[in-house]
Amino acid sequence: MELQITIFGQLTDITGSSNIRIPAVSNTDELLAALKQQYPALGTAKFVVAVNKKIIQGNTALAANSSIALLPPFSGG
């Protein structure tokens, strides 16, 4: 089982791809720990996590079908 994560903006410079997969974890704290291990530069990058298109506040449970995205600071307009 794997989770699929969509990466946006400058974070794609770190991951090298806009879609990454990691072995399944059960919540966003575990997800962030796993991601930072795999991509150490994420440790100092500014971003928020969106689960099912909502920015999360605090640790959030993940399911296999959760849509997960890493969003760096917005810079539209």
Binding site: F8, Q10, P73, S75, G76
Partner: peptide
Amino acid sequence: LVEKIKFELPVWGKELFEDESYQWKEN
């Protein structure tokens, strides 16, 4: 509306230079 669009919409701008290099825009 303009302020909300700038700060709340998940949109990213990549500033491209003539020589193909780039930097990510910051609002």
